[in-house]
Protein backbone atom coordinates (compact mmCIF):
# COMPACT_ATOMS: atom_id res chain seq x y z
CA UNK A 1 0.00 0.00 0.00
CA UNK A 2 2.72 2.48 1.05
CA UNK A 3 6.25 2.09 -0.16
CA UNK A 4 8.91 4.59 0.80
CA UNK A 5 12.11 4.35 -1.16
CA UNK A 6 15.43 6.08 -0.49
CA UNK A 7 13.90 9.08 1.27
CA UNK A 8 16.23 11.98 2.09
CA UNK A 9 15.28 15.12 3.98
CA UNK A 10 16.97 18.28 5.22
CA UNK A 11 16.19 20.97 7.74
CA UNK A 12 17.91 23.92 6.16
CA UNK A 13 21.43 22.63 5.63
CA UNK A 14 21.21 19.79 8.16
CA UNK A 15 20.86 16.46 6.39
CA UNK A 16 18.51 14.42 8.61
CA UNK A 17 17.18 11.47 6.62
CA UNK A 18 19.70 9.42 4.67
CA UNK A 19 17.70 7.21 2.36
CA UNK A 20 14.92 5.72 4.45
CA UNK A 21 13.07 2.83 2.80
CA UNK A 22 10.13 0.99 4.28
CA UNK A 23 6.72 -0.32 3.35
CA UNK A 24 3.33 -0.85 4.90
CA UNK A 25 0.95 -3.48 3.54
CA UNK A 26 -2.82 -3.10 3.33
CA UNK A 27 -4.29 -3.42 6.84
CA UNK A 28 -0.88 -3.68 8.49
CA UNK A 29 0.33 -1.72 11.52
CA UNK A 30 4.02 -0.92 11.24
CA UNK A 31 5.90 0.76 14.03
CA UNK A 32 8.93 3.01 13.60
CA UNK A 33 11.09 2.56 16.65
CA UNK A 34 14.14 4.53 17.60
CA UNK A 35 15.67 6.78 20.19
CA UNK A 36 14.86 10.40 20.57
CA UNK A 37 16.20 12.33 17.57
CA UNK A 38 16.56 9.20 15.41
CA UNK A 39 14.40 10.68 12.66
CA UNK A 40 10.99 9.10 13.23
CA UNK A 41 9.05 12.34 13.14
CA UNK A 42 11.05 13.62 10.20
CA UNK A 43 10.26 10.46 8.25
CA UNK A 44 6.56 11.08 8.81
CA UNK A 45 6.83 14.74 7.90
CA UNK A 46 8.73 13.89 4.74
CA UNK A 47 6.10 11.32 3.73
CA UNK A 48 3.43 13.93 4.37
CA UNK A 49 5.26 16.66 2.48
CA UNK A 50 5.33 18.88 5.56
CA UNK A 51 9.09 18.75 5.19
CA UNK A 52 9.66 18.42 1.44
CA UNK A 53 11.86 15.37 0.79
CA UNK A 54 15.05 16.20 -1.07
CA UNK A 55 15.23 12.84 -2.81
CA UNK A 56 13.43 9.51 -2.87
CA UNK A 57 9.97 8.18 -3.58
CA UNK A 58 6.77 7.96 -1.59
CA UNK A 59 4.52 5.51 -3.42
CA UNK A 60 0.91 5.16 -2.35
CA UNK A 61 -0.67 2.30 -4.28
CA UNK A 62 2.06 2.74 -6.86
CA UNK A 63 1.56 6.48 -7.32
CA UNK A 64 4.56 8.67 -6.44
CA UNK A 65 3.65 11.48 -4.06
CA UNK A 66 7.14 12.77 -3.21
CA UNK A 67 7.42 16.50 -3.82
CA UNK A 68 3.68 17.12 -3.82
CA UNK A 69 2.09 19.71 -1.56
CA UNK A 70 0.89 18.24 1.70
CA UNK A 71 -2.76 18.97 0.94
CA UNK A 72 -2.48 16.84 -2.19
CA UNK A 73 -0.87 14.03 -0.24
CA UNK A 74 -3.69 14.22 2.30
CA UNK A 75 -6.22 14.07 -0.50
CA UNK A 76 -4.46 11.07 -1.99
CA UNK A 77 -5.39 9.19 1.19
CA UNK A 78 -2.67 9.68 3.81
CA UNK A 79 -3.75 11.02 7.19
CA UNK A 80 -1.16 12.62 9.47
CA UNK A 81 -1.34 12.91 13.26
CA UNK A 82 1.63 15.01 14.39
CA UNK A 83 3.34 14.29 17.68
CA UNK A 84 2.70 17.76 19.06
CA UNK A 85 -1.01 17.26 18.20
CA UNK A 86 -1.51 20.76 16.86
CA UNK A 87 -5.09 21.13 17.91
CA UNK A 88 -6.69 24.39 16.80
CA UNK A 89 -6.87 25.76 20.31
CA UNK A 90 -9.52 28.38 19.62
CA UNK A 91 -11.81 26.07 17.69
CA UNK A 92 -14.29 23.81 19.45
CA UNK A 93 -14.12 20.04 19.22
CA UNK A 94 -16.81 20.06 16.54
CA UNK A 95 -15.02 22.75 14.57
CA UNK A 96 -11.70 20.93 14.79
CA UNK A 97 -13.41 17.89 13.30
CA UNK A 98 -14.96 20.06 10.59
CA UNK A 99 -11.54 21.25 9.44
CA UNK A 100 -10.51 17.65 8.83
CA UNK A 101 -13.73 16.60 7.10
CA UNK A 102 -13.64 15.49 3.49
CA UNK A 103 -16.14 13.50 1.49
CA UNK A 104 -15.52 9.75 1.60
CA UNK A 105 -14.61 7.96 -1.63
CA UNK A 106 -17.73 6.52 -3.25
CA UNK A 107 -18.84 3.18 -1.83
CA UNK A 108 -16.89 3.34 1.43
CA UNK A 109 -18.30 4.04 4.83
CA UNK A 110 -17.11 7.56 5.59
CA UNK A 111 -16.20 9.09 8.91
CA UNK A 112 -18.47 11.67 10.49
CA UNK A 113 -18.45 13.25 13.94
CA UNK A 114 -20.90 10.70 15.33
CA UNK A 115 -18.71 7.82 14.30
CA UNK A 116 -15.67 9.55 15.77
CA UNK A 117 -17.57 9.97 19.04
CA UNK A 118 -18.22 6.23 19.21
CA UNK A 119 -14.51 5.61 18.87
CA UNK A 120 -13.68 8.27 21.50
CA UNK A 121 -16.79 8.72 23.66
CA UNK A 122 -15.11 11.42 25.81
CA UNK A 123 -15.19 13.79 22.87
CA UNK A 124 -18.97 13.55 22.62
CA UNK A 125 -19.23 15.15 26.04
CA UNK A 126 -17.26 18.21 25.05
CA UNK A 127 -18.40 19.08 21.53
CA UNK A 128 -18.49 22.79 22.26
CA UNK A 129 -15.30 23.03 24.26
CA UNK A 130 -12.37 24.91 22.70
CA UNK A 131 -9.44 22.64 21.92
CA UNK A 132 -7.17 24.73 24.09
CA UNK A 133 -9.13 23.77 27.21
CA UNK A 134 -8.77 20.00 26.92
CA UNK A 135 -6.39 17.64 28.66
CA UNK A 136 -3.47 16.11 26.81
CA UNK A 137 -5.23 12.78 26.39
CA UNK A 138 -8.39 14.41 25.11
CA UNK A 139 -6.38 16.45 22.65
CA UNK A 140 -4.65 13.32 21.41
CA UNK A 141 -8.01 11.69 20.78
CA UNK A 142 -9.29 14.80 19.05
CA UNK A 143 -6.29 15.03 16.76
CA UNK A 144 -6.73 11.40 15.70
CA UNK A 145 -10.45 11.89 15.19
CA UNK A 146 -9.80 15.05 13.20
CA UNK A 147 -7.48 13.19 10.83
CA UNK A 148 -9.92 10.29 10.48
CA UNK A 149 -12.56 12.75 9.27
CA UNK A 150 -10.61 12.97 6.01
CA UNK A 151 -11.17 9.23 5.43
CA UNK A 152 -7.51 8.32 5.00
CA UNK A 153 -6.50 4.88 3.80
CA UNK A 154 -3.18 5.11 5.58
CA UNK A 155 -2.68 6.76 8.94
CA UNK A 156 0.63 8.23 10.12
CA UNK A 157 0.57 8.33 13.93
CA UNK A 158 3.52 10.10 15.52
CA UNK A 159 4.03 8.93 19.12
CA UNK A 160 0.39 8.72 20.10
CA UNK A 161 1.22 7.53 23.62
CA UNK A 162 3.68 10.30 24.45
CA UNK A 163 2.99 12.07 27.71
CA UNK A 164 -0.27 10.29 28.44
CA UNK A 165 -1.40 8.68 31.69
CA UNK A 166 -1.28 4.86 31.71
CA UNK A 167 -5.08 4.50 31.60
CA UNK A 168 -5.28 6.80 28.61
CA UNK A 169 -2.47 4.93 26.88
CA UNK A 170 -4.52 1.76 27.21
CA UNK A 171 -7.58 3.42 25.72
CA UNK A 172 -5.44 4.70 22.89
CA UNK A 173 -4.14 1.21 22.14
CA UNK A 174 -7.69 -0.10 22.05
CA UNK A 175 -8.71 2.62 19.62
CA UNK A 176 -5.79 1.85 17.32
CA UNK A 177 -6.63 -1.84 17.37
CA UNK A 178 -10.22 -0.98 16.54
CA UNK A 179 -9.04 1.03 13.54
CA UNK A 180 -6.82 -1.85 12.49
CA UNK A 181 -9.76 -4.24 12.63
CA UNK A 182 -11.58 -1.98 10.21
CA UNK A 183 -8.74 -2.49 7.76
CA UNK A 184 -6.91 0.84 8.10
CA UNK A 185 -3.17 0.70 7.38
CA UNK A 186 -1.11 2.45 10.02
CA UNK A 187 2.46 3.67 10.26
CA UNK A 188 3.15 4.53 13.86
CA UNK A 189 6.18 5.89 15.64
CA UNK A 190 6.89 5.04 19.24
CA UNK A 191 9.45 5.04 21.99
CA UNK A 192 7.15 3.05 24.25
CA UNK A 193 7.97 -0.53 23.38
CA UNK A 194 5.10 -2.06 25.32
CA UNK A 195 2.64 0.13 23.47
CA UNK A 196 4.20 -0.77 20.13
CA UNK A 197 4.06 -4.44 21.02
CA UNK A 198 0.37 -4.15 21.86
CA UNK A 199 -0.66 -2.70 18.51
CA UNK A 200 1.96 -3.30 15.81
CA UNK A 201 2.58 -6.24 13.49
CA UNK A 202 6.01 -5.25 12.41
CA UNK A 203 8.79 -2.95 13.61
CA UNK A 204 11.26 -0.80 11.69
CA UNK A 205 14.24 0.36 13.70
CA UNK A 206 15.64 3.71 12.78
CA UNK A 207 18.85 5.39 13.86
CA UNK A 208 20.45 8.65 12.74
CA UNK A 209 18.11 8.92 9.81
CA UNK A 210 18.69 5.43 8.45
CA UNK A 211 16.63 2.27 8.67
CA UNK A 212 18.76 -0.33 10.46
CA UNK A 213 16.58 -3.34 11.08
CA UNK A 214 13.15 -4.70 10.28
CA UNK A 215 11.46 -7.56 12.07
CA UNK A 216 8.07 -8.78 13.13
CA UNK A 217 7.06 -7.36 16.47
CA UNK A 218 7.24 -10.82 18.07
CA UNK A 219 10.76 -11.39 16.74
CA UNK A 220 11.89 -8.05 18.04
CA UNK A 221 10.52 -8.75 21.49
CA UNK A 222 12.53 -11.98 21.52
CA UNK A 223 15.75 -10.35 20.31
CA UNK A 224 17.39 -8.69 23.29
CA UNK A 225 20.53 -7.80 21.41
CA UNK A 226 18.85 -5.75 18.68
CA UNK A 227 16.70 -3.96 21.23
CA UNK A 228 19.73 -3.12 23.30
CA UNK A 229 21.59 -1.83 20.25
CA UNK A 230 18.91 0.47 18.84
CA UNK A 231 16.52 1.28 21.63
CA UNK A 232 18.16 1.32 25.04
CA UNK A 233 19.22 4.70 26.26
Amino acid sequence: MLRVDGLHAHYGRAHILHGVSLDVAQGEVVCLLGRNGAGKSTTMKAIMGVVPPSAGQVLLDGKDLAGRASFEIARAGIGYVPEDRRIFAELTVEENLEVGRRAAPAGSQGWNPERAYTLFPVLAEMRRRPGGRMSGGEQQMLTIARTLMGNPRLLLLDEPSEGLAPVVVERMAEAILALKREGLSILLSEQNLAFANAVADRACLIETGQLRHTASMAALMADDEVRARYLSV
Binding site: S70, F71, R86, F88, A89, E90, L91, E95, V99, R102
Partner: peptide, 20 residues
Protein backbone atom coordinates in the same frame (compact mmCIF):
# COMPACT_ATOMS: atom_id res chain seq x y z
CA UNK B 1 -14.02 27.68 10.26
CA UNK B 2 -11.18 26.94 7.85
CA UNK B 3 -10.14 30.58 7.96
CA UNK B 4 -10.03 30.54 11.75
CA UNK B 5 -8.08 27.29 11.73
CA UNK B 6 -5.61 28.69 9.20
CA UNK B 7 -5.16 31.77 11.37
CA UNK B 8 -3.85 29.45 14.08
CA UNK B 9 -1.85 26.87 12.15
CA UNK B 10 -1.68 26.99 8.38
CA UNK B 11 0.61 24.03 7.98
CA UNK B 12 -1.73 21.74 9.90
CA UNK B 13 -4.68 22.89 7.85
CA UNK B 14 -2.78 21.91 4.73
CA UNK B 15 -1.83 18.54 6.20
CA UNK B 16 -5.55 17.93 6.68
CA UNK B 17 -6.06 18.26 2.95
CA UNK B 18 -7.15 21.89 2.59
CA UNK B 19 -5.77 23.74 -0.41
CA UNK B 20 -4.31 26.83 1.19
Amino acid sequence: ILLRAATQDREMVAALGVDQ
